[in-house]
Amino acid sequence: MQTVSETDIPAFMRGTRLQHDRVRDQWFVQAPEKAFLADPIAAAILQRVNGESTLGNIIDALSEAYAAPRDIIAGDVVRMVQDLAERQVLTWK
């Protein structure tokens, strides 16, 4: 797995996106041939993936929004973003 730094910028790969489903009031990741449910933590992170914010920006924003310790948030964010990059949902700009 690729090592990442907080200056790296995650982005959705073409053909994948986060989408709020009004009917079910849930967040889904839309991807080729499947849509999978994004849990509240994943949705909070992915809503801040815009192809411009660095990982560090995203971690800052989340630790402020949830008033949570930055190092704990950082661990969650890096783990999830790396996992989704492996699964071809996200890529690095």
């Binding site: 489903d21 009917v23 839309q30 041939e33 499947k34 849509a35």
Partner: peptide, 11 residues
């Protein structure tokens, strides 16, 4: 397609 989106179809 309008009705499908309204009903909850995602893809």
């Amino acid at each position: 397609l309008d009705e499908a989106a309204e009903l909850g179809v995602l893809q």
